[in-house]
Amino acid sequence: MTYKLILNGKTLKGETTTEAVDAATAEKVFKQYANDNGSDGEWTYDDATKTFTVTE
């Protein structure tokens, strides 16, 4: 399945997607991506749209 990440950071904004077997796997990928790019904030997940959002 395709999962989407929306970044609403102070310095990093945008979207990216990943293919993953489940939401937990996608979350690990996205959290590593956000960490690698210095983005940290409040995470939410919408199962209906398969979208993670991180807001700083």
Rank of each mutant, 00 (worst) to 15 (best):
Y33V: 05
T11I: 10
N35R: 15
K13T: 09
Y45L: 01
G41C: 06
G9K: 06
T25Y: 06
K28S: 08
D47Q: 09
K31F: 05
Q32I: 09
T53N: 04
D22V: 01
D22I: 02
T18Q: 04
F30R: 01
T17P: 01
A26I: 02
K50V: 02
K13A: 07
M1A: 13
K10G: 10
K4M: 06
V29H: 10
K4F: 12
L12D: 07
T2N: 06
E15P: 05
E19Y: 15
T16N: 05
E56M: 11
G9M: 14
I6Y: 05
E56V: 11
D36G: 06
A20C: 06
E42C: 12
I6H: 04
F52D: 00
A20I: 01
V29P: 00
T51S: 04
E42H: 11
F30P: 01
T55Y: 08
E27L: 15
T44F: 10
L5V: 04
K50P: 01
E19W: 15
E15K: 06
T18C: 15
M1E: 14
G9L: 15
L5N: 02
E15L: 09
L7Q: 03
A26T: 00
T44L: 07
L7E: 02
Q32G: 06
E56L: 11
A34E: 02
T2M: 12
A23P: 08
L12F: 14
E42S: 09
L12K: 13
Q32N: 06
D46K: 02
F52T: 01
D40T: 14
T16G: 04
F52H: 01
G9F: 15
F52N: 00
T2P: 04
W43S: 00
K28R: 13
A20F: 04
Y33R: 03
I6V: 10
T49V: 04
T44G: 06
A48P: 06
T53K: 04
V29D: 04
T11C: 15
A20T: 04
I6M: 05
T44S: 12
Y3K: 03
Y33C: 03
T44M: 08
T55H: 08
T11G: 14
K4V: 09
A20W: 02
A34K: 02
L7Y: 10
E27F: 15
V29S: 04
N37L: 15
E15Q: 10
T18K: 03
T25D: 07
E27A: 09
A48I: 11
F30D: 00
S39Y: 15
L12Y: 14
K10P: 12
Q32R: 10
V21E: 09
G14Y: 15
D47G: 07
S39C: 15
E19D: 10
T44Q: 08
G38R: 06
T55I: 08
Y33W: 14
K28T: 07
D47I: 07
Q32E: 10
T2Y: 07
A48F: 10
V29Q: 08
T55R: 05
A20M: 02
T18Y: 09
K4C: 07
F30A: 00
T2S: 07
E42K: 09
G14E: 10
T49Q: 06
Q32Y: 04
E56R: 05
F52L: 01
T51Y: 01
S39I: 15
Y3W: 05
T51C: 02
M1Q: 14
L12A: 10
G38Y: 10
T44E: 08
T17Y: 13
D47T: 07
L7S: 04
T25L: 06
W43K: 00
T55N: 09
A24I: 09
T17N: 05
E42R: 09
A20D: 01
K28Q: 11
V54D: 01
A23I: 09
L5G: 02
T2W: 12
I6D: 02
A34F: 08
D36A: 12
A48S: 11
T17Q: 10
N37D: 04
A23T: 07
S39T: 14
N35V: 14
A24R: 09
T18L: 11
L12N: 11
T16E: 05
A34R: 02
A24Y: 09
G41R: 04
E27P: 00
T16H: 14
E15N: 06
V29A: 07
A23Q: 10
E56Y: 13
Y45C: 00
F30G: 00
L12G: 12
T53P: 01
D40S: 13
L7I: 15
D22M: 02
A24E: 11
T53C: 06
K13N: 09
N8Q: 12
V54M: 10
M1Y: 15
V29R: 08
K13G: 06
T11M: 10
T55S: 09
Y3A: 03
T51P: 00
L7T: 05
K31L: 08
D40C: 13
T2R: 11
Q32M: 08
T18F: 11
G14R: 14
